[in-house]
């Protein structure tokens, strides 16, 4: 069996890649993808946790949590992508450094 620390390490690296993507990328589309990555990093931790704690009694809380998060991510990305499409139609680019009109 794979030790839990490997999974933790995998989750942490995925999450860090996600954060890096959110912070470093300028394109809105890539930021959304990075967000998905972070979500998945968290979810994988859930599944690993439930697996880790299911030694005396079977435990599938992690999988249920995964389904919930997946639904949330799907709806979130649906809204996000529609916004991205609208923005692209209006501004013809997706550079968030230039999309700072809400400040005013």
């Amino acid at each position: 069996m794979i030790p839990i620390s490997w999974i933790l390490f995998l989750s942490l690296s995925l999450f860090s890649i996600g954060i890096f993507g959110v912070l470093a990328r300028r394109n809105l589309l890539f930021i959304l993808i990075s967000l998905e990555l972070m979500l998945n990093a968290v979810v994988i931790l859930f599944i690993a946790g439930s697996r880790y704690h299911s030694v005396p009694v079977a435990n599938s809380d992690g999988q249920i949590m995964y389904l919930l998060v997946l639904t949330l991510a799907a709806s979130e990305i649906a809204v996000g992508l529609s916004l991205v499409i609208h923005m692209y139609r209006q501004h013809h680019h997706l550079d968030i450094d230039k999309l700072n009109k809400l400040r005013d």
Binding site: I19, V22, L23, R26, I96, D97, L99, N100, K101, L102, R103, D104
Partner: peptide, 12 residues
């Protein structure tokens, strides 16, 4: 400043 990335950075 309206820069989404700096908001994110401060959050992190």
């Amino acid at each position: 400043n309206g820069q989404l990335r700096s908001y994110n950075a401060s959050l992190v």
